[in-house]
Computed example of a mutant assay.
Amino acid sequence: MKLFTQDKFVKKLSLANPVHFLALGFGSGKAAKAPGTFGTLAAVPLVLLMQQLSLTHYLIITCISMLAGFYICGKAAQDMGVHDHGAIVWDEVVGLMITMIAAPLGFMWLALGFVLFRFFDIVKPWPIRWLDAKVHGGFGIMIDDVLAGVFSLIGVQLAVYYL
Rank of each mutant, 00 (worst) to 15 (best):
W109E: 03
G113W: 06
V89R: 01
T5K: 10
K75H: 09
P35A: 06
I88G: 02
H85C: 01
F119Y: 14
M1W: 12
A103F: 00
L55M: 09
K12D: 07
F117C: 07
I154N: 13
V47S: 02
V150D: 05
L147M: 15
I61P: 02
G29H: 02
L24N: 06
C73V: 01
G113N: 07
G69P: 02
A87D: 05
C63S: 09
L55E: 09
C63T: 03
M50P: 10
T37F: 09
F117R: 08
W90A: 00
F139Y: 09
A23D: 04
M100R: 05
L49F: 11
D121A: 10
F120N: 06
L59Y: 00
L46Q: 02
V160W: 15
W126K: 13
A102R: 07
T37D: 06
G113Y: 04
L55I: 12
M66K: 00
N17R: 05
L147R: 10
M142H: 04
S28I: 06
A34S: 14
S28N: 05
I122V: 15
G81T: 03
Q157H: 14
G69F: 00
V156Y: 10
A42C: 03
V94F: 00
I61M: 10
T56L: 14
H85G: 01
G155R: 14
T5C: 10
H85A: 04
I128W: 05
V19A: 11
S152M: 13
P104A: 05
G106K: 08
I98F: 02
F114I: 08
D145C: 07
N17S: 07
Q52S: 10
A76V: 04
A34Q: 09
A133R: 15
L24S: 05
V135M: 06
T56Q: 11
F70M: 04
G113M: 07
